[in-house]
Nucleic acid binder design. Structure first.
Lengths: 331, 331
DNA sequence: ACGATTTAGTAAACCGATTTAGCAAAACCG
DNA sequence: CGGTTTTGCTAAATCGGTTTACTAAATCGT
C-alpha cells in the first residue's frame, strides 16, 4: 500500500483535488465546502494517514521552510550550541535546518552555498570563512535573505550579528598584566578571518598599552588541518620561551592547549595562565587557570533568527549590524 | 534580474526545454543534440549562472538526496561528532543532512519524523528515545530506509549500529573493584532507554559478581529537563552516602558531575573515581579520575552511512544488527 | 415567480524540472 | 531514385500539490 496523494484521495472519495486541498488547508468554510464533505475528507485523511508532500508544496509556493546553517564545523561546541538554539527558535516558527560544515575551506563553502540555494532554502545563517567570495557576492546582489554571525568582512555590507572582539580581548589580558604577567604569547588558527584578526589586535594593544614589548615570535599560528600536532609544536615554543600567559583566539584551540598542558607539562599548569576568547564549562575547574571571554550564545542565536525572519518577510535588505557585548569571566 | 528556469533558457535561445534539459544532464550526445547547439546552451548557462531547482528535480525524481539525522540533542558532543562524520561521508555521495533534536521527548520525535518524511528525505539515521512509537512502526512497515544507532528496542526489528553495553560497563567497574572500591553509586538519565538499561545491568552484574551488596538507593536517576540541579542533588546524596566510585551512563551526565565535583566538593576529587560510558577529551586530565568506555565514533558513523546507503539502493530491508566493541580507557 | 445571490464544488493552469513518444529532414543504401 | 536509418529536435505528460476562474444548483428577496 503505497502513499496516497491528494489525487488518490479525491478519486477514492469521488470529489475533486481542489476540494481536498481546500479542506486540508482549513479553507473549507471560506471556500464553501459543506460540513459534511469536509468531515468525509478529514475522516478519510485520518484513516489512511495521509501526509502531504512538502516538496510539491514547496515547488508551488516557492518557499521551503528550510534554513541553511553554514559554519566551519558543526561539531565545534560553539557552533553546535548556537545551531541547537537556532534549531529550537526556528522550530517554533515552522522552519527546519539544513546544515553544512566548511572546514574553513573556500571551495567547500561555495559548493555548500550553491547546494543550499539550489535546494531553495528560504534563508541562510552563516559563519563564513570567506565572505567576499563570488557566490556570496552574487547572493547579496539578489537580496537573498542571509545573516552572518561570528565573523565579518568590513568591506562587505550585510546583516551581521557580532561580538565585540578587540576591547574585551584587551581587557582580559589587562587582568593578567595587573597580576604581574610579563611575557605573554598567543596561539591562533588562521588570522585571515577578520574577527580573529581583531582579537589579535586586542592582544597587541594590551601589550603596547602597558609598555610591554610586542615580540612577533610569541604570536604563533596553528595549522587548522593538524590542530593537535601543530598546537603541540607552537605551545612548546611558547613555554620554552618562558611565557607566563598564553592567549587563545577561540575555544577549540584553548581546549586543545589545556589538554596538551596536562599531558605534556603537568608541572607547569599552576604557573601559567590562559586567556581564551570563547568560554567552555571545563574552564571553571581546569588547569591552567583560564580567564575567558564568554560569548552571549543565546543572544547570538536569537538575534540571528530574528533578523533573518525580518529580511525574509520584507524582501528589502537592511544591512543591520549588531554588536553584542561578551562577558569576561575571571577565575 | 530574477532567476532563470530551464523554460526561460529555452525561450531565450529558441530551443525546447527538452533540449536544454538533455544538455544539462550530459545526455546531449546520447540524445543526438548537435555539438553546436550543446555549446550554445552550455555557454548561455555559464553566462547567466543558471542553477537548477532541486525542489523541482526532487518532485519529478522522487528523491531528494537528503538524509534526516534525528538525535536527542545535536549539541551533545557525541551526537555532534557523529553527525559531523556522517555529514562528511554523505557529502561524498551527494547527500545532505537535515537535522532534528528530540530532547528525549516522544511527541517531538514523532513531529520531527513526520516532518522528515513529508520533506521526502531519502533515509533516516536515528538515535531514538522511543523506537516503538506509531510513526516508526508505520515507517518500518513501509520499508522506509532507516538506520538506528546508539539505542535499540529489542522487540523492534530494524537496522541497528550499536555498541556493546553490558559487558564493557561491567569490566570498567571491575577495574575499580580490583583497586579496592567498596561502595559504588550510579547516576543516569532516564533508564527507559534500553541501551542505558543494559549499562545499568552491567553495573548490577559487577556488584553481584564481586559479592557486593546492590543497594538500589545508590542508583540515582537524574531529570533530563533539569540536569544541573537534579544531578547536583543526586550527586550530593551519593557523596553523603560515602561512595568511593560513581558510575555514569553517558558523557553528558559525567561532564556535569565533574563540573559539580570541582565546584562543590573540590576536597573530594582525589578520593573518588568516576566510571563513564562514553569518553571525552577532558577525561584525560580532569579530576576526579575517570575510567571511561570510549565508543568507536568513526565506525558508528561509517557503518550507519554504509548500511543506510545499502537499504536505499535495495529497497528490501535486511534488519542488520551490528554490535561494535567499545574501548576501555583506564587512566 | 423571476432575477440576484449564495452555496458547493470543479476544471485547468501552474511551479520547474524529467522523460517518453514521435516528427521532419538529412544521410545512406542498393 | 525510393525506401530505410540516422540525426536533431520537440510536444506533451508527469511528479503532487495550490489557486484562479468558472459553473450549476439552491436559496433569497420582493
Amino acid at each position: 500500500m503505497k502513499k496516497k496523494s491528494i489525487k488518490d484521495i479525491a478519486q477514492d472519495l469521488g470529489v475533486s483535488k481542489t476540494t481536498v486541498s481546500f479542506v486540508l488547508n482549513k479553507k473549507g468554510d471560506e471556500k464553501n465546502i459543506s460540513k459534511k464533505t469536509q468531515k468525509v475528507i478529514l475522516d478519510y485523511i485520518e484513516e489512511v494517514g495521509y501526509q502531504p508532500n512538502q516538496i510539491a508544496k514547496s515547488l508551488k509556493n516557492g518557499t521551503t521552510n528550510t534554513i541553511g546553517y553554514l559554519v566551519p564545523d558543526i561539531s565545534n561546541p560553539f557552533y553546535a550550541k548556537i545551531g541547537r538554539m537556532i534549531e529550537d527558535l526556528l522550530w517554533e516558527k515552522g522552519y527546519h535546518l539544513l546544515i553544512g560544515s566548511t572546514d574553513e575551506k573556500k571551495e567547500k563553502e561555495e559548493l555548500l552555498l550553491n547546494m543550499f540555494v539550489n535546494r531553495q532554502v528560504d534563508g541562510l545563517i552563516i559563519a563564513s570563512c570567506f565572505i567576499k567570495g563570488d557566490v556570496l557576492k552574487s547572493l547579496s546582489r539578489q537580496n537573498f535573505p542571509m545573516v552572518f554571525f561570528d565573523r565579518e568582512d568590513p568591506e562587505f555590507l550585510a546583516n551581521y550579528i557580532l561580538v565585540e572582539n578587540k576591547n574585551p580581548m584587551k581587557e582580559a589580558i589587562q587582568k593578567t598584566i595587573d597580576k604581574g604577567a610579563k611575557k605573554i604569547g598567543l596561539l591562533s588558527i588562521t588570522p585571515d578571518v577578520y574577527s580573529l584578526k581583531l582579537r589579535i589586535d586586542g592582544y597587541k594593544q594590551a601589550l603596547t598599552d602597558n609598555a610591554l614589548e610586542y615580540d612577533e615570535n610569541l604570536l604563533r599560528i596553528v595549522d587548522y588541518n593538524h590542530i593537535k600536532e601543530s598546537a603541540q609544536k607552537e605551545l612548546k615554543y611558547l613555554i620554552e620561551a618562558g611565557v607566563d600567559v598564553v592567549v587563545f583566539t577561540n575555544n577549540q584551540i584553548t581546549a586543545t592547549a589545556i589538554w596538551l598542558m596536562n599531558m605534556h607539562y603537568p608541572e607547569k599548569v599552576k604557573e601559567i595562565t590562559f586567556v581564551s576568547f570563547d568560554n567552555l564549562d571545563i574552564f571553571d575547574y581546569s588547569m591552567p587557570r583560564v580567564i575567558s571571554i564568554a560569548q552571549p550564545i543565546m543572544s547570538i542565536a536569537r538575534q540571528s533568527v530574528d533578523i533573518l525572519e525580518e529580511v525574509i518577510k520584507n524582501k528589502e535588505s537592511k544591512n543591520t549590524r549588531i554588536e553584542l557585548k561578551p562577558k569576561l569571566i575571571e577565575r
